[in-house]
Computed example of a mutant assay.
Amino acid sequence: MTPIVWRSAQPGDEESLSLLGQATFLATFAFDHPGPALIRFLKELHSPEFYAAKLADPDVDIIIGETPLGAPVAYAMLCPPEHSDFQRDGDWELKRIYLLGPWQGGGNGAALLQHAIDIAHKRQARRLLLAVYENNDRAIGFYRKHGFAKIGDTIFMVDDVEFSDMLLARDMTM
């Protein structure tokens, strides 16, 4: 397996993040998300413009993983939480954590998650939140293994189609 080189994403990485976000989301969710809504969602919320705005926002941290030749294979994005019904002071959200299939396993997901946890610690987060699709059993098991527990349910919109997500949290004070 080609090793992953981790770094903070910078302005200029928006094309890589866009392609990676689109590829991983499509590969993961095409089996049960309606095609037209999925394509519209990817064009809007995984566009280079979306990532350029996130990279310019001082409240957003993005870690990117690349092959030694610079091909993007993973990223995670942390930001202030968007789940007002569940959030507390000191919460941060792991808004996106994506890893291309061939790099899953072998500790790469755990390494990416650890980078995100390290960023949350630097942000002095008391809790790290994340939403995960309720039918993504593999991801749910991974997050539970790494200290996340369910705190509620939320809706995730893919264009105009609703999907049920579980909202998980990990205590960062331990």
Rank of each mutant, 00 (worst) to 15 (best):
D89P: 15
L17Q: 02
F163G: 01
L94A: 07
G12K: 08
Y75V: 12
D59G: 14
F31R: 05
Q10C: 05
G105L: 05
D13K: 03
A30F: 01
I117V: 15
S8N: 13
H83Y: 05
R126I: 02
A116W: 09
L17H: 02
E14Y: 05
I155R: 10
W103H: 08
A74V: 09
E14A: 10
K122G: 11
G152V: 07
R170G: 03
S47P: 11
A76K: 09
L168A: 06
P80K: 14
P68I: 10
D91W: 04
R7V: 11
V132L: 09
M157F: 13
D137L: 11
P81E: 09
N135T: 15
A149H: 11
Q114T: 15
F41K: 07
R170Q: 12
H146N: 15
P72G: 03
P11D: 07
G35M: 11
R40E: 13
W92P: 00
I151Q: 06
E14S: 05
D159A: 15
E66H: 01
T154M: 07
E134P: 01
L26F: 14
T24I: 14
A116N: 05
A149Q: 13
I63K: 03
L55N: 05
Q104I: 13
K54N: 12
L45N: 15
F156A: 01
D57I: 03
L99Y: 01
D85A: 13
S18I: 10
R126L: 07
H115N: 12
Q87D: 11
T2E: 15
D171V: 08
I39Q: 06
D91G: 08
G70W: 09
Y143F: 15
M172I: 07
Q104E: 14
C79G: 01
E44Q: 14
P48S: 04
D91C: 12
F50I: 06
V73E: 04
N108G: 10
M1G: 13
A120L: 08
G105R: 06
Y143Q: 04
T154K: 04
L100V: 12
V60M: 03
A120I: 11
V161I: 15
Q104G: 08
D118T: 14
A125E: 11
M77P: 10
I97G: 03
A110D: 08
I155S: 09
G65S: 07
E15F: 03
A76Q: 09
L100F: 02
V73H: 01
G107Y: 02
F86S: 04
P58Y: 00
S84N: 09
T2Q: 14
D85Y: 06
D13C: 04
H115C: 09
E162D: 14
D160G: 06
D118H: 05
P36L: 00
H46L: 09
I64Y: 03
G101I: 05
I119P: 00
H115Y: 07
G21E: 07
F25S: 08
P3G: 04
I4P: 08
F148T: 00
A169V: 13
H121P: 01
H146R: 11
A56R: 12
E66A: 10
G109L: 06
Q124S: 14
Q22L: 02
G35R: 15
F86G: 03
V60H: 02
G101V: 12
W103D: 04
I39M: 05
A56L: 10
G106R: 07
Y143A: 02
L45P: 00
